[in-house]
Design a protein around this nucleic acid. Structure first.
Lengths: 127, 127
DNA sequence: GTTTGTGTACGAATATATTCGTAGATGAGT
DNA sequence: ACTCATCTACGAATATATTCGTACACAAAC
């Protein structure tokens, strides 16, 4: 897994990374089919994007028969963390709390979700 | 304040909106000087961006002498909420909780922050 | 009334991201 | 060995975002 300093995938790239993070690894077709569920997109578009991502080092691939199997080369938590961090800095004045409250306020979180967050906070506070 | 369905400011536009949200309203120069603290950017670049935003309805302006005074036309909470929502959907599989935990885990939240979030959750749960 | 500083308008260059067509490789089925 | 489906490579078109130069307006200072 690579150790890049600033990971800044574009929106399309992020969608692809998400598929890869979920599935562990996948062919272009598998990724494409996942994406196609959500939006209209051509197969070669997905292919091209993944080739670009390979170039940037966001993914790696290995040959399997005539197809390539891709794997994310950037860590899910780290990448998400960086994106959230940028978000917190630019939109919420550096305060994670503000962001959390915004997210929970706007979003209809279920009671179970809220409880889980509370548990998480308790554990975190005890440390 | 406008009632747009999908507010999707670009990154640069968001930076400008942030200044306007903080200051209530501001001239191009005022905005520009704020931005210039953080990054190299030409005055006319900021001007142009704000004109584009005017066109999109993201901001309004009124004449004051020879300058224009700009005001955000999109609501801060609503805009932030929409952006967070998109984020939650694409990166966190629709779960606000996952996002919150990511944010709190990565970010070093202070004890006071955690307590405030807990209070917030308590109030929210009681309803 | 000319100079200077500060403002707006806006076209156009550049940068970045996305889309897709077309060409050619390869393997499976016949 | 031919055909078909499916794959990769990649140039190029398009879309979107950003940057800035240049032109011109205006008012204050001289």
């Amino acid at each position: 897994m690579s150790t890049q300093q600033h990971i800044k995938p574009t929106e399309s790239e992020l969608e692809i990374l998400n598929v890869l993070w979920q599935q562990g690894s996948a062919t272009v077709r598998e990724v494409h089919e996942k994406l196609a569920l959500k939006k209209e997109v051509g197969y070669t578009t997905t292919l091209k994007l993944m080739q670009i991502m390979l170039n940037k080092g966001l993914v790696s691939r290995e040959v399997s028969g005539k197809t390539h199997v891709y794997t994310a080369e950037v860590d899910k938590e780290k990448t998400q963390g960086q994106i959230m961090q940028r978000m917190i800095e630019t939109m919420f004045n550096g305060s994670a709390m503000q962001m959390v409250m915004q997210a929970l306020g706007n979003h209809k979180a279920t009671k179970a979700e809220l409880d889980m967050i509370r548990d998480y906070l308790d554990k975190k506070s005890k440390k």
